[in-house]
Amino acid sequence: MEDVITEAAPPSRLLEEDLNNFTPPSPLLPSPFLLFSHSQQPLKPSLLIIAISSPSLSLFNNNFNPKTLIASLILPELPLSLPNNTLDIHSLSSTVLIAAVRCSIPADRAYAVANVLLSDRIRPDSVIILDSLQPMNHRGLLSSDRAVAFKLESLAERKRADGEKKLLDGLEYYPSGSVVDGLGAAILGRCQVLNIRASLCVSWPQFDGSVVLLLKDLLRRCALPEFDFGLSGDDVLKYGKSKDHVFQSHLYI
């Protein structure tokens, strides 16, 4: 006769997904929304730059001020009493806007933010996304002594009309087998759905003055040839040297 105390319990007759029927669903988070500082009319810039990485935010830091603020994207779950909890959209010129992503966007909210950022109220002709390369997503060796950047493009950018300049010229494509996730990937996917010319730049190291200079040269060559970043050599030195160490990714190895 079996010992009912020591014998393992029989397997449940319910499937694991059926057990979730007894658990109340988590409440849905409110959708992010845009709050405009002046006009409520749809914005139609020729270029929208989305700065997610720390070097890209540092590059444009002197251009972020209340006079250039056009709109803010609000995530209701983040307290507004804390600084940098909004995604602010500034004007760099009459035809170029930049969205400064200073807060960390959770992965499960990335697509909601991308859908609001690229909606009927903001309709750019083209989009440049400046994000950091996450070492765990890269297949290969990364060194903190060498600044590198790669790109991914939407189909509309790859099939641009003859004579149209590339959004990010001179960058190699992201190595095959590597992946990108987070807000940058969600925005690129949104551009793909809306058939918008878009290019995603991922750079490494994540915190380094050399990457600031790399992005500055890239944007001056491709998208903002006459723009004054207001960034001096001292500002780059203040940004500091990267603390990222050599990283060997074992992705797909």
Score class of each variant (00 low, 15 high):
D234S: 10
S242G: 10
R102A: 10
C191G: 08
V4D: 07
A100K: 02
L142H: 06
K243M: 13
C201Q: 04
W204A: 03
S210N: 15
A100Q: 07
A112R: 04
I196P: 00
L152R: 01
D181A: 15
Q41F: 04
S178F: 05
S232P: 14
L73W: 02
N137T: 10
L251N: 08
D108C: 05
Y111L: 13
Q192C: 13
P45W: 00
S26K: 15
M136P: 03
S58F: 08
V4L: 15
L28M: 14
D88F: 06
A100G: 06
I89M: 07
F247K: 00
L168M: 12
T86D: 05
C201D: 02
D244H: 10
I49S: 01
F229I: 07
H38N: 09
A114E: 00
A149F: 04
T23F: 12
Y252E: 15
V246C: 11
H245S: 12
A100M: 09
I70N: 05
S249F: 07
P124W: 00
L171P: 01
Y252N: 14
D208E: 09
A71S: 14
C191S: 09
S210K: 14
E153T: 07
R102N: 09
V148K: 03
K241F: 10
G163K: 11
F60N: 01
P24T: 09
N85W: 05
A8R: 14
K241S: 07
L82V: 07
I128V: 15
E164Y: 04
F60M: 02
C103L: 15
A185S: 14
Y174A: 03
L133H: 01
S126M: 03
P30W: 04
D208N: 11
N137I: 05
Q134R: 12
N65V: 07
N65A: 04
S144A: 14
L167H: 02
R190Y: 12
R158P: 08
D234L: 08
R220G: 11
E77P: 09
S232T: 15
R146T: 13
D244I: 06
A112Y: 01
A100N: 02
A110H: 05
P45F: 00
L80F: 05
N20M: 13
T68H: 06
A8H: 14
S176T: 13
L78Y: 13
Y252P: 01
F227K: 01
S104C: 12
K216H: 15
M1E: 07
S203T: 13
S132C: 14
A147T: 06
P79E: 11
M136F: 13
L215K: 06
L78E: 14
A99W: 02
R158I: 06
Q248A: 12
D3L: 09
K67Y: 04
V116R: 05
